[in-house]
Design a protein around this nucleic acid. Structure first.
Lengths: 343, 343
DNA sequence: AAACAGCGTGTAAACGTTTACAAGACGTTG
DNA sequence: CAACGTCTTGTAAACGTTTACACGCTGTTT
């Protein structure tokens, strides 16, 4: 494949000049410039980013390791990240951890070897030795969506406490007092926090949460179905099942349907994470929407701040309740059912 | 950051030896080997893949340019590709074309500059000059899901003709004779072929297709909604709307719901592409399922065959009809509603 | 007219690996 | 004991860029 040397020869200039016109890093006569560009076109020259990266010690690439590529939340997130990165002239390399620590590590390692300029990580449950090392070595790292305890890494995430409060209040307004929560893994910040917020909200609304109403899943559909089954088998089953993420909500939905129960008449359903098709189900499901676009944007900005040695600002954004019909027809405040955009 | 030199110095050996133990490319004494590994651990040495790639002229990375990352079909595809690639020791870099030729080109260019070892492309509508050049230059390229006319590039895709035939037969069995089709862009192979197959199937079943029942969308939800509206406004609206991909089906669904029409009583709905949540809608929607996993696997194998200069085999796999309830209750053959797995 | 500033260009080193080639140590064979 | 093979190791070149530095030319300032 043609290199800068070939271009130089054809244009009758030195390699330095070629490089200069290609990056317009220094003044070059209009005429030489033209000759070089002509040669470039003629040879179909494509700069070798590998060589450039080696020389400049920068790849203009960031890594993004997500929890699960089949989870629409992460897909949307990936897209937002990608958009913002492109705007700043960076490419994104995505790694799919599949919620498995060893696969997460695989990507962290690979991406660092590939010398990405920065790394966005949605950490899986455990804090692996590798991640600890990477943090210690001071690699440009930003946590996204989730965080890990005791690690000094800037994090961009959403806080659902307020929205969960609104949800519980909404449920009480509908006369539903027995609410169960399917949490994510306790090892995950997003798992723990949502559980805590739920407990607090229930308490604040004067509602009890029996221990058996707090079950743990793993953020995958299968666990949603199993835990929902456990809940519905209870002697005194809950009036509403609140799932800690969209995939577990899907699993719960399956179980409810399989038992021939009606939503919301027999049991209500709500979900953390809103995904496009929630609105298309019958009945549409009430959910808590995270500001995904903004999360992605902020994460990239934080990371690039880090990379370019500017002061970095972590961010905690607010999630928001979107009331639909899966927990009962609201006699209260009948909105448009879609909420109305806080950015 | 520590380099191979530092390791060599610390271990008291030459850089060549370090490289040798790292790649175990040649015999090294057990003792030296141990010393080197110790030094590697001590320094937290991470090989520089950029330098290695420059030297070896190989990145062990393949590029994947998909049509739209928000389309679950492509997400699943990406995942399958990624799995298979990892199994062969390759990483995947994903580019999201957003169904825009210029963005597709952006990624094709970037990935080639990054010197991926091979490129998997789901081409957008037009055949851009860049793509033509790339093909001419003989870059290791394989088309996936879609193909471009007049370009000699191995392609891995699914053929839905048979499944569409089965769908039309199914509809006729239900007594539905007036079927409309929302096609994808005529410029896309997947757009054209599905239309043709639909026409042929209707003819074979002795059914008419008035011109106004053939409308074109762009594989995005919005167009599904608009075209569905046009169809439903017809003086003699169709009894079934068949959407050319899952996103347009979603749009059509919205329009149907917005008009308060019942599915399948007032109008039936079917979709090309099956996605997980179709089964969760009420009623569950009848769809044509593509062998996504297999598509991904075959594509990677074809590409790696190409890369490693083995003979490459293109592949055309069969799609399959999954009958659910969105076109009417079948008095005929009442299956499990999920079909039963042909691989 | 000498000194100098500014501009366009070229020469060559450097980035961190891998690897061809050479060389030294040692054992085996004639 | 010389010759040779084998096995482990080291030296140095190469990969395709970018860029510090030097150079020569032109025009301006003293």
């Amino acid at each position: 494949m043609a290199g800068v040397k070939d271009v130089a020869r054809l244009a009758g200039v030195s390699v330095a000049t070629v490089s200069r016109v290609l990056n317009d890093s220094a003044a070059v006569t209009g005429e030489t410039r033209a000759r070089v560009l002509e040669a470039v076109a003629e040879l179909g020259y494509r700069p070798n980013a590998v060589a450039r990266s080696l020389r400049t010690d920068t790849t203009r690439t960031i890594g993004l390791v997500i929890g699960d590529i089949l989870n629409p939340f992460f897909t949307e997130l990936a897209r937002a990240v990608e958009d913002e990165a492109r705007r700043s002239g960076y490419s994104v390399v995505i790694g799919n951890a599949d919620e498995r620590p060893e696969r997460q590590d695989h990507y962290v390692r690979t991406l660092l070897e590939q010398r990405v300029d920065g790394l966005l990580l949605c950490p899986t449950a455990e804090i692996t030795p590798l991640v600890r090392d990477v943090v210690r070595d001071g690699a440009p790292l930003v946590f996204l969506d989730r965080t890990l305890p005791g690690l000094d890494v800037p994090t961009v995430r959403a806080d659902g406490a307020e929205a969960i409060g609104a949800l519980v209040a909404h449920l009480r307004g509908l006369g539903r007092r027995r609410v169960a929560f399917i949490s994510g893994p306790a090892l995950l910040s997003t798992g723990r926090e949502r559980t805590e917020a739920f407990r607090a909200a229930m308490r604040a609304n004067g509602l009890e949460v029996p221990e058996e109403y707090l079950v743990a899943g793993d953020f995958r559909a299968g666990s949603g179905r199993e835990t929902a089954a456990r809940l519905l088998d209870l002697p005194r089953p809950p009036e509403v099942i609140f799932a800690g993420d969209n995939l577990m909500a899907l699993g719960a939905l399956d179980e409810i349907r399989a038992r021939g129960l009606r939503i919301p008449a027999d049991v209500g359903l709500a979900s953390y994470d809103d995904v496009p098709w929630f609105a298309h189900l019958e009945p549409p499901v009430t959910a808590i929407e995270q500001p995904v676009q903004e999360l992605g944007r902020r994460a990239v900005r934080a990371l690039l701040d880090r990379v370019e040695r500017r002061p970095v600002e972590p961010a905690v954004l607010a999630a928001r309740l979107v009331v639909r019909r899966s927990c009962g027809e609201a006699p209260e405040n009948r909105g448009d059912g879609e909420g109305s955009g806080r950015a």
